[in-house]
Each structure stands twice: as C-alpha cells, then as structure tokens.
Amino acid sequence: MTVVAPFESAKPAPESQPERVGVLLVNLGTPDTSDAKGVRAYLKEFLSDPRVIEDQGLWWKLILNGVILRIRPGRKARDYQKIWNTEKNESPLKTITRAQAEKLAAAISDHDHVVVDWAMRYGNPSIKSRIEALAAQGCDRLLVVPLYPQYSAATSATVCDEVFRVLAGMRAQPILRVTPPYYEDPDYIEALAVSINAHLSTLPFQPELIVASYHGMPQEYVDKGDPYYAQCVATTDALRKCMDLDATKLILTFQSRFGFDQWLQPYTDKTIEKSAKDGVRRIAVVTPGFSADCLETLEEIAQENAEIFKHNGGEQFAFIPCLNDSEPGMDVIRQLVLRELQGWI
C-alpha cells in the first residue's frame, strides 16, 4: 500500500534558474556607410516604419521613393562624412553603443551567466541577428534595453515591435523583459548634472543660457496620446531642480523637424537664432534625449546650430556631449539593468 503525503505538507519545487540571461542594448540606428547609397538604405528602412511616419499610404510612398530617397541621401551623406569615425569606418553612434555594451559587460561580469550584446533598430547589427546570437549562446531569458531616456512610440515602442516580430518567428522563445524609460530617474538626472557641470568647468566662458534640446516629433502624435512631450518636460524640470537653475537659465527646445507638419515647439534652431538676435552672446546646448552622440548632436547641434548662433550675433557656443560611455553614463545603464534583472540574477 502506498501512503500519499497530505497536500499541505508538500514543499514547492525550487524556482529553476535561467540557463543564461541575455541583455540587449538597442539604439536608433545608423547607415552602414557614409555615402549616399548607405544613407539611402538606412532612410528607406527608417521612413518606412509606420511608427515613425504613421501615414504610410500611397501619397507618402510616392514622396518617399520619388523625392526623399532621390535627394536627401546625398545631403545627409555629406553630414555623416563630417562626423564619421574614419578609423573604424562607422558612425559615432555605432562606436559608442558598442563601447556601452562592452563596459556594461565588464561592470556586471561577476554575474557570469549574463551575456551583454547590442543592436540598432534600423541598420546593423540588427535586432534579429543579435537575438538569434543570444539564443545560440543559450540565453533563455532576455532583457531588452531601449537606450531612450524618454518613451515615444517612434523610438521605444518600435524597438518592442521589432523584438516581438523576431520572437514571433522563434519556436523556443526566451522569456522577455523590457526596461522602462528613465526620464526622471534620480541617477540619470544626477549624471546629467555632473556631466554638464564638468563640461562647463572646462570652458573659457560662463554661458548666459543653457538649452536642453530634445529630438522633435509631430505635434499630432502627442495630441493622439504619446507621452514623449510630458516626459521631456519632466526631465528638464528635474534637471533645473538638481542644478538650481530657473526656467530662464535652462530652457527646453526640440530639434530635427522633418516635413511640413507642425512639430513640438519651441524649435531649437529658431530659439538659438532668436536668442542671438536678442543679445545672448554665450550659450551652451545639452541633449538629454540622446544616450549617445550621433548625427543629430555632433552635426546638427555642434556644427549647424553653432553656425546659426554665430551668424546672428552670438559669440561663444558650447555643445555638451551626451553621457555616452562615460562613468556617469555607464552608472545609469548599469543600475537600470541590474534593477530590471532582479529575480533573474
């Protein structure tokens, strides 16, 4: 006769430990080459995403293929060539994102079953290729880290869209987590303040005005419910408080508008132009919506907007680099990742 122990006395089985955990850092993307051909391929992928351009109808396809992809690649290629990492033959965004992944891997190396990798939403290395590589290394759990402090459907959500598409084609899917936006995380705000103050201390002048410039988006997207604008405001407010600056000394603007629709305002270039005309002679610009320097910071801000400022009467212009793979920047990423890995490591 077999005696069965009462149900109440049964002990729960210990939770199985993951075989390996993959951590995938993801940034926006970059052309593979700095010539018109490379930029055209990148722009086609980017501008064909309905998260970026929501109306993908016939009219947009005609404009994209008949006008934009014929004219814009040559112009943007010249801009990329101004900032291109010629030693590695790649964009600074790719160089920096790789460095962020390598430094994160070193910072959490005591967790030997964690594998860190990196990808681009558009261009290479693709999200698909890196998820497949992590799966091949035995990662049965995956933490995706969109490197955007502020959430928007055109950035964070489209990363998730692509991850879901990749997983939809996998028979053995990893368990998935995605890090949240960190737009007012105290560690992030403190890192921004430390970085800004450190850079300002190296300047031969004291700026009269600090401009916090964020990537723009069509006003319509926010009207439909995208939280991006509110999160940019929250970042700027928290940074002002941390640096003890009021709204007249640290202002919020939006850059990189595209097309003819109304985008989030005030516009960075118009604000910088007006400031110079109004008598501001010393200015510094920081870009708290970017985790790594790229075309929009190194060329659009540091070169194009600097020229706008000086052309209209400004004298001294400083671009404050992104957090990149600096020690404060890596502390933000490391703490974000370790927080979201709780229960897996």
Score class of each variant (00 low, 15 high):
E304N: 09
Q303W: 03
F319H: 15
V280I: 15
F254N: 00
F309D: 08
D293W: 08
L264W: 05
K249M: 11
G289I: 01
C294E: 04
K249W: 01
V286L: 04
C294Y: 00
V280K: 05
A292E: 01
A302P: 05
A306G: 13
Q265H: 12
T287N: 13
S275N: 05
L250Y: 06
L252V: 05
K277C: 01
F309L: 11
P266D: 06
Q265D: 11
F260N: 10
W263H: 11
P266L: 04
T271E: 07
F317H: 04
R282K: 14
W263M: 11
L252F: 00
K310E: 12
D278W: 02
E296G: 06
Q303P: 06
Q303E: 12
T248I: 10
F319C: 09
D293Y: 11
T287Y: 01
S291D: 10
W263K: 10
V285D: 09
K270V: 08
F258I: 06
K270D: 13
A318H: 13
N312F: 14
Q262R: 15
I308F: 10
D269L: 02
E315G: 09
G289C: 02
T268A: 07
I320N: 03
R281D: 07
D261E: 15
Q255S: 09
C294F: 05
L295C: 04
V286K: 00
L252G: 03
G314A: 08
D269N: 06
A247D: 12
K249F: 03
T268G: 06
T253N: 08
F260W: 09
P288A: 03
E307N: 05
F254P: 02
Y267L: 14
E304M: 08
I272F: 03
A292T: 06
Q316H: 08
A284V: 10
F290Q: 05
I301G: 04
D293C: 09
K277R: 15
F254A: 02
G314W: 04
I320P: 05
D261R: 13
N305P: 00
K277V: 04
F260Y: 12
Y267V: 07
G279M: 00
G314K: 00
L264M: 09
A318Q: 11
F290G: 01
L264R: 08
A284Q: 09
K274T: 08
N305I: 02
